[in-house]
Structure formats: structure tokens, C-alpha cells
Design a protein around this nucleic acid. Sequence first.
DNA 1: CTGTTAGCGCCTTCAT
DNA 2: ATGAAGGCGCTAACAG
Lengths: 353, 353
Amino acid sequence: MTGPDPQPDDQPAPRRRRLRPDASAGPTLAEVAARAGVSEITVSRVMRGAGNVSAATEARVREAVRETGYVRNRLAGSLAGHRSNQIGVLLPSLGNIVFPDVLNGIEDSLEARGFHPVLGITHYQPEREEHLLASLLAWRPAGLIVTGTRHSAATRAMLGAGGVPVVEVMDVDTPPVDMAVGISHRAAGAAMARHLIGRGYRRFGYVGHDLGADERAAQRRDGFRHALATAGLPEAQECLSGTPSSVGAGRAALAQLLERARPEAVFFSNDDMATGGVFHCLAAGISLPGDLAIAGFNGLEIGQQLPQPLTTIGSRRRDIGRRAADMILARLAGETPDPVADVGFTLIPGATA
Amino acid sequence: MTGPDPQPDDQPAPRRRRLRPDASAGPTLAEVAARAGVSEITVSRVMRGAGNVSAATEARVREAVRETGYVRNRLAGSLAGHRSNQIGVLLPSLGNIVFPDVLNGIEDSLEARGFHPVLGITHYQPEREEHLLASLLAWRPAGLIVTGTRHSAATRAMLGAGGVPVVEVMDVDTPPVDMAVGISHRAAGAAMARHLIGRGYRRFGYVGHDLGADERAAQRRDGFRHALATAGLPEAQECLSGTPSSVGAGRAALAQLLERARPEAVFFSNDDMATGGVFHCLAAGISLPGDLAIAGFNGLEIGQQLPQPLTTIGSRRRDIGRRAADMILARLAGETPDPVADVGFTLIPGATA
DNA sequence: CTGTTAGCGCCTTCAT
DNA sequence: ATGAAGGCGCTAACAG
């Protein structure tokens, strides 16, 4: 980057100090300070809004900032000041709208306070989470938001040792490393089972996607099954697609399930899958909920705009994201928020069950 | 953070050097170096994979790193080394799957090379973009990915002055500040018009969302209208919802349009809107494409899983994201990629038109 | 292949 | 309300 300088240096001064020889590096506090006729620290105070600067001085500094086109350097600032405005965010997937919704909530809260999310996608792989976390930690983020409570031992260790606030989002069924925001997915699954039982259904089916990866979907299924057992009902007939969740997978899996079973009502692992189920019924001339009842999870917009609104559970993803960011920010402000926040879910009755 | 220390310091030594008095700060290169019996720079070389370190030395260093639990500090590293592994990413919205898809592609490519996206959401507001960009620039990112080519003058200035690679994504209709990846939205709109004309339709409708915010949707509409005019056909009857794009908005807007017009075919601003249109038809008993033809844009999975697959245009969002990241990375590697990459779109015939 | 020296640009602490 | 001094932890630029 720095230009070559092949000439032998035969001047007496042995060491040539290179105070910003490189014009591309941009102005520094020192330059602004000189221009404003104040010291660096005063400019620093103005830039940080640290107070203890007279209005007149501040005006002169701001003017100098404008003239020089000074851009704050947070690398230097964070190194010296031990504080960052970056929050590491680890999400498993951006493949459907669920985690983007969470991220949206996170960004909402962070942006309002001048913080930035630094993102990593784990693809539901613990090793990838571990690797990404290690890499993020090198930036000394002010806080961390990670998904779920299932982590590798090394990940758990890093989260614990970091000394920064950590929020595990989505799930409050397991005690968190530090803090958690979400809902109980077991309870949600059970709630849907009870709702369907209350509607008179007795023979159940379950259609799911790759549950090995998506632990929360697995928990909903567990809750659902447990509630059926508690009610003395037979086990649900299941069809698990083994693929990631998608509308197509749900559509195919329901078709497959119906080849070998005649459930009255089918609980899907989520709304994408359930929407696929609805599409299968639409295409196959199966009437909802007369011939078959369908229920999902998440409360996505698409489900509510179907010809018949989907019976589902609203999962308040954006609230979860916002809340997670707020908890981090509260900690950074010296507060001690409740370590676990259950934002609760809402059963949306819909018309498909 | 540092504990209070109110005692007056009456010792002779005037300045107490605090080399890491705070245990929470974690080990430094110096500690690892001491433990491995080498100099700091050698540890640094190992950590950065800079080469020029013997296998034996490297092994000792790695062992010392393990023993001390050393975590690299990129704040210090980037400050000293003038290089970051962070890429600023500015997206207008995470409200539907479109930009998460792009982000997914970006993250894909970045993660493979050890880079991280630092995210900002502009909500389609130029002032917000400007503000976020200024804030991101303070982190001296290695590159920048921003959406579209419409920016405030200040934003444009910052993008130009940054001295870092910049990619404007989604749209290649306008010359970029530095580089661009995307498709021509005008061409896409025109292509759909020609496709529909080729299918025999002559009376057209257009259903859109808030076009003031979404310039690319506006360009598709322009291309569509222009192609109709070129073919000597009457203007499309339009219904613009003024809200952000959503399935519900599309559903409502189509219903409204059909109250006052009888188009043979309707082009929607995107697949979310078009899906809403399909749902309206499903609910109102309008048969597709006999009574009405519908076309969208984006090629979302949901559209292809509808009882009849949606006629639409695939927009290769993930490719756009990946490509954008690759262009930045190429530049950082000293290469000079073509400044404009048109990834092209695909007309998906579907069955709704 | 390994080490020395001198900052990177800012903020903390302490003084005034 | 303002300033002086030094260090945050690391890497570039040389030497050897």
C-alpha cells in the first residue's frame, strides 16, 4: 500500500518517522485538533459525546472535523477504550423468513443505540458455530447473541469465558449460559396438541423436516407427542422428510403420509411445511378442515393469507430479536435484566383445523 | 471495569505501569511468546499464517496458545496492519426472503475466506443509509456491499472516498460507483411483457407495492410498460398499494383492481404480491389462467409450490450475494474483476399465465 | 527463519 | 473545562 522508497537514506536523521505518509489513511485526531487549536483529547471527547467540553470549543472542533473530513477510527478507539459497538450474532440459517425476522428485531434495537450486528451463519452445524464464534471473539464484541442452547463444549466455554453479555435466543426450555429470550417449544407443541384435541380430533399425524438439525422443531414434536400420550390418545403417525424445511418438502411429505395413514389432523414442524401441506390438499381436492385438519407453527404471513388462514402458533420472532439486543444493551449499561425472558406464544386458531 | 483504587499513591515511583492489571483482559502475544520462548512477532506470524516459521517453532507456539487460551485481538491487528476481515453490508429490508437470500450468498463466500459481514438495514431510507455507512466506515471495513444505485450525495461521496472496494448489488441498470452485480430490472419487466404478449394476452394490469421506496420494482414496471407501448398495446390498468410488499397487500390490491378493470393478465411487482393475487383468485373462484393470468418476479419457492406454479422470473439472489462478496475478495487479492456483473435472469413459464 | 524497533490512532489516568 | 503522558495489543519494516 505504501509507495516504494528505494533511495538509500543518507540523511543524518537515522529514523524517518512516518506520521501518516500515506494520504489514503485519512485525517487523524491530531490533524483535527491542530486545526481546531485544541488537544487531541478534546476532539476525542467531542467525537464520543463524552461531555466536559464547552459549547464554543465543541463548535470549533465540529467545524474542523467537517473541514478535514475526519472519520472516527473505532479500531483505535476500541483498542484503547476497551469498548466496542459491535455485537456478534450467530444464526443457524437464513433459508426462510424466521431468522431474518429475529435479525430484523436485533438490528432494530441495535441501530437505535448505534450498535452493529456482525453476522455468522452456522447452518445448524456446531463445529461451524464454534469456528465462527472464535473468529468473532477476536473482534472483542461488546456482546453476543447466539441461537439455541445446544452448543459444543468449546463453544460453551468461549461463551462463558468471554466476559461479555451473551443471549441465547429462541428457546427458554434449557438454562442459559448467561441470558436467554424465546419461548418454550415443548409447551408450544403441547398447546397445539391440546387445541386440536379440544376441537375434537383424535387421530393425529405429524410431518416434520430434518429434526436432527433443528432442535426446536424436535422439542415442539416432543411436546406434541407428550400431550397426546397424556390425553390417552394413540401416537401420531409421522412422516419426517430429512431435508431442510420448505414448502415443497411439506407438500411431498404430507402426500407420502396420506398414502399409508388416515389422520384426522396433522401437525407440521412449521408454517412452511404446513403451507406445503395446504397446497397438497388444494391440488388433491382434499377439503380443509373437513377431510383433514392442518396446523403449523410460527404464524407467518403467508399462512394467514391462504384461502383459509392456517391454524398455527405465533412465535414473536422480531420481539425475540429486539429483546435479546435490549438485554445486551441493558447489561452494557450496568443493569441486571432478568436472565430468562419468555416472550410467550399465541395460538392462532385459523380455519384449517 | 477496573476496580477502584482510592489510596493516595505515596510511593516514589511516579507512574505505575499497568501491564494488564486486569485479569479479564486475557492473554496477549507477549505472554504466549514468553511461554513458547520466542518473540511476539513469531507468534503473530503463526496466528496470521504469515509463513516463514519453522514447523518446530510453530508447534511450540500453538502449544503455548492452547495453554494460555490466547485469543487473537483483531482490533489491535487491524489497527497496526491496516487490514480488516469485516465487510460492511447495507440492505434495505429483511421483511421478505429476497434480501436474506442475498445476505446468505454474501455470508457463504465471506465465511469461506474468514471474513464477516457487518450488517445495516436502511429501511429504504437514504438518510438511514448515509448514517449507517458513516458508522460502518469508522470500523475501516475491508470492503462494502450496498444495495442499488440510488444514494444520497453524501453516501456517494463516502463510497467513493473510502478507498475500499464497493459493490452495489441487485441492479446493473445504472453505472456503479465502483462495481455492481445484479440484473437489469428494466429488461426483466420488458421480458415478462413480451412473454405474456407471446402467450396471446393483450389487456394488461399491473399490481404493485410502494414504488417510491423500491426503485427496482419501479424499473421493472417501467420496462413492462415500455414493452407494452412498443408493441402498440394499451397501457396496463394499475393498482398500487402504497404499502410495503406482502402477500396480503397483493391479495387486496388485485381484488381492488378487478373491481374497476378486466385485464386478461396481471403483472405483479414481485412474487409475494403475486402469491396474494393467486390466493385472491383461489378464494374468489377465478380460474387461472383461464379467467385471469398472473405473473410475478423473483422465482420464490412459494410460487413454484402453489397448486399451479407461478409464472415468474428467477432473480438469482444468492448468486448475486456470492458474486458481490467474490468481487470484493478478488479486489483485496489484488485482482481487477469486471466492474459490472450481470448475473442474468430466467423466465419461469409456470402455469398461471 | 527469527528478532528489534517503532509506531497504528485513540483513550485512560491524572493533573491543572 | 482542558491538557500531557503513556499504553491498548499488534504488525510493518527492516536487520540478521
